[in-house]
Amino acid sequence: MSDLGSTFDEARQEFARLTTAVWAPAGQSLVFQLGLRPGDAVLDVCCGAGSSAIPAAAAVGQSGLVHAVDLADELLEQGRLNASERGLQNIEFVCADATEWEPPSTVPQLGYDGLACSYGVFFLPHMDAAFTRLAGLVRPGGKIGITVWRRGAVCEFADTFLDAVARHGERSIGPAGAAFDILERMDTPDRLHQWLAGLGAHATEVRELSNIIPATPEFAWDAVLGGPLRGALSSFDAHTIEAIRRDFLELLTDRAIHDIDAGTLVGTATTNEPNAT
């Protein structure tokens, strides 16, 4: 398993507690914007516990199917439990490398009808090439869609946490750090439009999802432990992690950071027909 997959596996409990406030609103918005219909076949990559895959399964109904792919076994198991609680039998959670995914025989010959990736595209190695390949698994005229953090979102919060980490050691979140640099290429509506069009898609649509969440001490620490920021703590012992937690919460107070900006861009596009220009 990749280091990133292991980080998210360790984050299962906190990740789940973030779902209602963070992951679910974006996932539901993405599925709505994709315009999925009953009977559609959908591929959801970097699916986590199913924030977009589960509403996609509900949208396509029993005549449709969803393949939800991720490297984090623990999150996939949570997704299976979530789907079971909703009585969804048309979704399969698969532990696999999305960059090497090949559609099984249950997928129509022309390909998937939709591709979804919520808060995950920037974690794909060689992002442009990887996502272009995944988009190629979608039939001509099908839909592709992603969610990404809007420019400025979570930055003040993340910087404050890393400042607390720097008091005790290296100010780094490990392999996930590169994702934040890549994100700059698509963190405004114009840039996301351009990025989607650069994949060879058309009819791009980008909507902004505002999401301001109170930074209570409990939620703020869950937001650290439930995502890639957790990687910054991997080299510290429990005593030091507790010291970092205290310093972080004190810095939030000192800097009058009372909310977390989880603003998100939801971008979709249509794959080109063979004769499209």
Results as ranks from 00 to 15, higher is better:
residue 3 D to V: 13
residue 6 S to C: 05
residue 7 T to C: 11
residue 7 T to K: 00
residue 8 F to Q: 00
residue 8 F to V: 01
residue 9 D to K: 08
residue 12 R to W: 09
residue 13 Q to S: 14
residue 15 F to I: 04
residue 16 A to N: 11
residue 17 R to H: 13
residue 17 R to D: 04
residue 18 L to D: 00
residue 19 T to I: 10
residue 24 A to D: 14
residue 24 A to G: 08
residue 25 P to N: 06
residue 28 Q to P: 01
residue 28 Q to L: 08
residue 31 V to R: 03
residue 31 V to S: 05
residue 36 L to K: 02
residue 40 D to L: 02
residue 44 D to W: 02
residue 45 V to R: 00
residue 46 C to T: 11
residue 47 C to P: 07
residue 49 A to N: 12
residue 51 S to E: 11
residue 53 A to W: 00
residue 54 I to N: 03
residue 54 I to T: 07
residue 55 P to Q: 08
residue 55 P to A: 07
residue 58 A to I: 13
residue 60 V to N: 06
residue 61 G to K: 06
residue 61 G to V: 10
residue 61 G to I: 08
residue 63 S to V: 11
residue 63 S to K: 12
residue 63 S to M: 09
residue 64 G to D: 03
residue 64 G to I: 05
residue 64 G to N: 07
residue 66 V to S: 08
residue 67 H to T: 04
residue 68 A to H: 08
residue 72 A to N: 01
residue 74 E to P: 02
residue 75 L to H: 04
residue 77 E to Q: 15
residue 78 Q to K: 11
residue 79 G to Y: 04
residue 83 A to H: 03
residue 86 R to T: 05
residue 87 G to K: 13
residue 88 L to M: 13
residue 90 N to W: 07
residue 90 N to Y: 08
residue 92 E to Y: 11
residue 94 V to Y: 01
residue 94 V to Q: 10
residue 95 C to D: 00
residue 96 A to Y: 03
residue 96 A to L: 07
residue 98 A to I: 03
residue 101 W to F: 15
residue 104 P to S: 12
residue 107 V to R: 06
residue 108 P to H: 10
residue 109 Q to T: 14
residue 109 Q to P: 01
residue 111 G to E: 09
residue 121 V to P: 05
residue 124 L to Y: 06
residue 125 P to E: 06
residue 125 P to T: 04
residue 127 M to S: 09
residue 128 D to N: 09
residue 128 D to P: 00
residue 130 A to P: 06
residue 131 F to K: 01
residue 132 T to G: 11
residue 134 L to P: 04
residue 135 A to F: 00
residue 137 L to Q: 10
residue 137 L to T: 13
residue 139 R to T: 08
residue 141 G to H: 07
residue 141 G to K: 08
residue 147 T to A: 10
residue 147 T to R: 01
residue 147 T to K: 02
residue 150 R to H: 13
residue 152 G to W: 07
residue 156 E to F: 07
residue 162 L to V: 03
residue 164 A to M: 07
residue 164 A to P: 02
residue 164 A to V: 04
residue 165 V to L: 03
residue 172 S to Y: 00
residue 176 A to I: 04
residue 177 G to S: 11
residue 177 G to I: 04
residue 181 D to I: 13
residue 182 I to D: 05
residue 182 I to M: 11
residue 183 L to I: 04
residue 184 E to F: 05
residue 186 M to Y: 01
residue 188 T to M: 07
residue 188 T to N: 05
residue 188 T to V: 07
residue 188 T to C: 03
residue 193 H to I: 04
residue 198 G to N: 10
residue 200 G to N: 08
residue 205 E to L: 09
residue 207 R to M: 11
residue 216 T to Q: 06
residue 218 E to I: 12
residue 218 E to L: 14
residue 218 E to Q: 15
residue 219 F to K: 06
residue 221 W to D: 08
residue 223 A to K: 02
residue 223 A to L: 09
residue 224 V to W: 00
residue 225 L to M: 15
residue 227 G to A: 14
residue 228 P to M: 04
residue 230 R to L: 08
residue 238 A to I: 11
residue 239 H to Q: 15
residue 239 H to L: 13
residue 249 L to R: 10
residue 249 L to K: 08
residue 252 L to A: 03
residue 253 T to Q: 14
residue 253 T to E: 12
residue 254 D to P: 00
residue 256 A to L: 06
residue 258 H to W: 09
residue 259 D to R: 13
residue 263 G to Q: 05
residue 264 T to C: 12
residue 264 T to M: 00
residue 266 V to G: 02
residue 267 G to I: 02
residue 268 T to V: 14
residue 269 A to I: 03
residue 270 T to V: 15
residue 271 T to R: 07
residue 274 P to C: 07
residue 275 N to H: 13
